[in-house]
């Protein structure tokens, strides 16, 4: 597991308030299926921006970006320039 994936997983466990045990939280698990809400997505986004010192542009502001840990890792990687 990459550092980025591990960090994002910790952020999800802390902020996403989803009703799943940690084992279910695989990188590709659909967080919305696990109960991620619009409000907690906002908390996640702010935490990710703070952690990785990035700012999500408007084109990334949608549920798809936050659908899974992997999707967030991909977005952060792109914003950090790979």
């Amino acid at each position: 597991m990459s550092d980025r994936i591990a960090l994002i997983r910790d952020i999800v466990l802390k902020h996403a308030r989803i009703a799943a045990d940690a084992a279910a939280l695989t990188p590709t698990a659909d967080l919305y299926t696990l109960g991620l809400s619009s409000m907690t997505t906002v908390h996640l986004m702010v935490a990710l921006e703070d952690q990785f010192e990035v700012e999500f542009p408007d084109r990334m502001l949608g549920r798809k970006t936050f659908q899974s840990i992997q999707a967030m890792a991909d977005a952060v990687e792109e914003l950090q320039g790979g």
Partner: peptide
């Protein structure tokens, strides 16, 4: 605010 940008986008998306 900052988080509000995403909340607006997801409210529209849904």
């Amino acid at each position: 605010g900052r988080g509000g940008r995403l909340a607006k986008a997801t409210q529209r998306e849904q």
